[in-house]
Amino acid sequence: MTAVGLLSASAVLYANQLRRLARARRTWVALVLAALPVAAAAVIVQFAHRYEGPPPAMSIGWVLQVQVVVPILALILGSSVVSEEVDDRTLTFLFTRPIPRPALLWGRWLASATVLSVVLAVSTGATLWILRAGLADHAPTPEQLAALEGEDTRLGAGVAGPLMAAVLIGGLTYSALFAAVGTLFRHTMILGLGYTFAIEGFVANLPGKSQTLTIQHHLRSFVAGYGSPLWRELDAFQNAVFGPGPEALLTLATVLAVALLGGSWVLARRQYVLPS
């Protein structure tokens, strides 16, 4: 029996972590949070009037889903990837096996990312479906939209797809970032909450270039670049500076890759002193 490779060790840890997450309390908390946009959509369709400009799916999808639910769910599921093993002092068992240490990050992060993606996709899909079905009669006509934008903009086109993609890409990027932070620091949840509200919540909405340092900025640029021009009309984007869509996508992919590779590098070298 030789030492176990990265892929096979990651696969074993992935399968195990997926099973554990299915019954973990943090998954149930994530499900409750993910239900918030769905509930908000259900309430809105009850009191909807005819609207002009960007459809409510954009506002709810962005403000509630991308700005709040995505980072917090990613924090709940991503921060525990490594730090849970350190806090629970079970890391010893994994670190004294003949496996490459980064397998711990890859296997467990992939499991968290799978659960996160499924939960976010279902939540976003349900939110969009409720809004589409409930507000069909209240939507502006294509002529109204064309007048607003000065071009032919079909309602629905460039909204659901980019929003779903932004939610999933955002979830993966945030969770990889929080997982990587967990390789360096304890109390990742507190750090992550601070980052989510102070940097992603505040700096991302400041006028000027500082917002380009946030993931929110790149997600905004992504939906504005690949989606309907109506995205730029959102109130939530009032102070936004937009970059090109492909560049935003590349930046987000780079952040994700750097987080995972950096976390792997730390895990492979760092000593974790666990109290007996």
């Binding site: 029996m1 030789t2 629970d88």
Partner: peptide, 16 residues
């Protein structure tokens, strides 16, 4: 990793 294959460690901390 080569050594981990040949050594079994039962740590003191009460963690499972």
């Amino acid at each position: 990793r080569e050594l981990y294959r040949r050594v079994g460690f039962a740590p003191q901390q009460d963690a499972l």
